[in-house]
Simulated scan of single mutants.
Amino acid sequence: MKYAWVDAYCLAKKGVQKDYKVEWEATRYMIRGKMFALQGGDKEGKAIITLKLEPMMGELLRNQYEDIVSGYYMNKEHWNSLYLDGNVPDGVLRDMLDKSYQLVFHSLPKKVQREINGPE
């Protein structure tokens, strides 16, 4: 797979848990039960990863890269899917993963954020 580093990259982030949702045939990456990335396939079985982004950022990326589309089986405004056999640069996918993680992390209660970050 082109982006073989994705699993380790997601799991290296603070507070991330991974599971496999059998009904969806997809791997989920979550922070305290809130998903920020979903890796699976589309209806043709093509490998995709779906990430949460600010709507304007998602639209910008979809206009820039043909391999980034509105979230597959997700809210089309907030979620975006990237085809893993496409030509999106690694740096762009890393940035998307970082932004998705941060969006979900900052939606958590401040107390939970502090628990995840640990003592400063």
Rank of each mutant, 00 (worst) to 15 (best):
G58E: 10
R28H: 08
E66C: 11
L108F: 03
V104K: 08
N87D: 13
W79S: 05
Q113K: 04
F36R: 02
F105K: 02
A8G: 12
S107N: 05
R94T: 14
K14T: 00
M30W: 08
N117C: 12
P109D: 09
K18M: 07
A37E: 07
R94A: 11
S100Y: 09
M56V: 09
A12M: 04
D90K: 14
S100A: 08
G41W: 10
Y29P: 04
G118A: 12
K76S: 13
L11V: 09
D90I: 05
Q102C: 01
K13E: 00
Q64A: 05
T50N: 01
P55S: 01
N75K: 14
Q39K: 15
W79F: 11
E115V: 06
L38Q: 00
R62P: 14
L93R: 07
S70N: 07
R28T: 05
A26T: 15
G15S: 10
W24Y: 09
R94E: 10
G15T: 03
Y72R: 12
V22D: 12
S100Q: 01
F105T: 06
V112G: 06
M96W: 00
M74T: 10
E44T: 12
M35E: 05
L53E: 08
K52D: 10
T50S: 03
L97W: 08
Y9H: 14
